[in-house]
Design a protein around this nucleic acid. Structure first.
Lengths: 146, 146
DNA sequence: TTGACAATGAGAATCGTTATCATGATACTG
DNA sequence: CAGTATCATGATAACGATTCTCATTGTCAA
């Protein structure tokens, strides 16, 4: 099985940060790459089974985040959900289901993203706030729970 | 000291929900009303001191939320932050400081809010998602931490 | 191989939050 | 206005997600 570009980019990034790309870390990255939205540590643990103990999952996620490979978001019920960083997957937003708590990535058209960006710089300027990023969470019911 | 409109609206709402508007609950509402952004239970506890024990703060917040008087958001470090519901304070968004973790409310011009709303209904339609609400969090550095 | 150091796994510790339960306050009822 | 049902409180225990600790294992470089 030939290594994906994604994998090679991550290898590179970790190498720069003097961090090894071990089996456990690859497993976690693999699960995150397959997912269609951010995953909690518990979800990762369920998927990885006994291959990677929970404590290692947490440590791995923290290491990967320090190296900029993953990012985290805070979801319902105090759960932290992780996903590959945007420089790997592209900028996107989230559809958060208030019913089942699932979170799905959603891309938004460049034109619209542009207008959000403009909006934000206007607001930030008004509040003398130095904006570096933004997150648009759309809450509602997903197709399943509709 | 004459009762504010806000207080009277809350009284009303709690009455409808068969919930008493006790001293402790008034204290919590008072702190939230003064704040310029959502507060965590710990922050409330610090402000209220020994007047309202932490466990009561949590219970109060939960009761107030059930009655629709407060809403909560999830912030950095797994902290839940509470603020008065939007029907009391108006719709607004948040400026989240990645440095100090503070969160400030920010209003956005009606025209812009309109465009965000439009954007969201477009996206939601595409994903067969039934959107009911949205949250735009602007991350960056606040004036203090700039 | 050996030494140095990164990474791991298992469990204990921590921290925010929630539940429990005995006690105190409030509001109906007669 | 005494009795009683119910709600609210405060102290503390319990809980669950996350982080820390530390002894052990794996990896790389000389």
């Amino acid at each position: 099985m030939t290594k994906s570009t994604l994998d090679r980019e991550i290898e590179m990034r970790l190498y720069e940060h003097d961090v090894r790309y071990t089996k456990g870390r690859r497993a976690v990255v693999g699960s995150l790459a397959k997912a269609s939205g951010p995953m909690s540590a518990a979800e990762l643990s369920e998927e990885l089974g006994s291959d990677v103990p929970l404590s290692s999952i947490y440590r791995t996620l923290s290491v990967l985040e320090d190296s900029g490979v993953v990012e985290h978001h805070l979801g319902a019920k105090g759960l932290t959900r992780f996903e590959l960083a945007e420089w790997l997957t592209g900028h996107h937003h989230h559809l958060v289901c208030v019913e089942c708590g699932s979170v799905e990535d959603v891309d938004i058209p460049a034109r619209q993203e542009e207008s959000v960006r403009n909006l934000i710089s206007e607001i930030a300027a008004l509040a003398s706030f130095h904006a570096t990023d933004h997150a648009l969470e759309i809450e509602g019911r997903c197709a399943r729970c509709a």
